[in-house]
């Protein structure tokens, strides 16, 4: 009992090599031959779906397979004239999550001017609260995810001046827990996905010095299980998306070498579906664009040379971040 852990076992017949062509085909046809019911179920997060797919395609150098002009037109029609925010799909309400996804896509295409940039800046700034936190939409849900959305979005537009950065940082730091990790709000449990959001916010705001780096990095390393995969909280099952959230955080902390890269790579590769293409949360499950992006981005951080370098803060190709002359902070050891 004392040494049991929740984990999965990798089978011998698992995929052991990277099936790039399969993934490119999978994403190119996603929505064409996808189960229809599931597809319309995802309308409410379409904008993020486009970001996941396009970024994955960019990392594979296959983005020409995506319908660029139609995507840009779609984004334009998702911008709310009044608030300036962007919604998941046409006719939906604007939200910080989808505003960020849209800006990320436009930044990769170098076409941010296709939308009303000032409107987006106004929208994001209007979500900041007195304590420095951010709402996700007009209904007032507060979460450190939205802090990250705000600073990432504005930095991609070179308009960080539109918000109170010090207060934004203070709020994020108020969510730091006794174990060095971060949750969604002050007092909420540490969670690897939210740690990524908080570390990312500090990276963009160049305040990485405020972290308890060694303590936090150790907590992140503890997420690795014997299968090689990473979980998001103690005593939870491994999930491929944490390969991104944990590894990108460790990259920003400059401590990525603390995990067992070989084992993690095996786990990520095992999450591929050799028939349909794409990656899933755990070996044998159904694949989706979300896990496909984080699988590829994770492999990129591990140094796979068939995938373009990804920026750990932005989860976008490094070449885009360089073109925009952005320099998110990486901690010096």
């Amino acid at each position: 009992m004392a040494f049991t852990k929740k984990d999965v076992t990798l089978s011998e017949d698992r995929p052991k090599t990277l099936l790039l062509q399969k993934h490119s085909d999978y994403l190119a046809s996603y929505g064409l031959n996808k189960d229809d019911y599931e597809y319309c179920m995802t309308e409410y997060l379409r904008m993020s779906g486009i970001y996941w797919s396009l970024t994955a395609m960019e990392l594979m150098n296959q983005s020409s397979r995506m319908p660029k002009e139609e995507i840009i037109e779609f984004i334009t029609s998702c911008q709310d004239k009044e608030s300036g925010g962007i919604s998941a799909s046409i006719g939906h309400d604007p939200h910080m999550l989808y505003t960020l996804s849209a800006i990320q896509v436009l930044a990769m295409y170098d076409r941010v001017n296709a939308i009303d940039v000032e409107g987006v800046v106004r929208y994001v700034a209007s979500m900041q609260q007195e304590d420095g936190s951010f709402f996700g939409d007009k209904w007032g849900e507060v979460d450190t995810r939205f802090s990250f959305c705000a600073v990432m979005c504005l930095s991609l537009l070179h308009r960080l001046d539109a918000i109170n950065i010090n207060k934004a940082v203070d709020f994020v730091l108020s969510c730091m827990n006794f174990d060095g990790g971060f949750g969604s709000k002050p007092g909420s449990e540490s969670h690897a996905g939210l740690i990524y959001c908080c570390v990312g916010t500090l990276s963009i705001c160049k305040r990485m010095d405020a972290l308890h780096a060694d303590e936090l990095a150790w907590w992140l390393c503890e997420r690795q299980l014997p299968s090689g995969g990473l979980n998001g909280r103690p005593e939870k099952l491994p999930d491929l998306c944490y390969s991104w959230w944990v590894m990108s955080s460790l990259s920003m902390l400059n401590r990525i070498h603390w995990v067992d890269k070989k084992n993690l790579e095996q786990f990520i590769l095992a999450c591929q579906d050799p028939e349909t293409g794409g990656f899933s949360d755990r070996p044998g499950d159904i694949t989706d664009p979300f896990h496909t992006l984080f699988g590829l981005a994770g492999l990129s951080l591990l140094g796979n040379e068939n995938i373009k370098p990804v920026n750990p803060t932005y989860c976008m190709p490094q070449e885009t971040i360089d073109r925009l002359k952005l320099e998110p902070q990486i901690l010096l050891i």
Binding site: G31, G49, P67, I90
Partner: peptide, 11 residues
């Protein structure tokens, strides 16, 4: 539904 970009959205 007002369809977006085609290959991404054929429903």
């Amino acid at each position: 539904e007002n369809d977006g970009p085609k290959p991404v959205v054929v429903i």
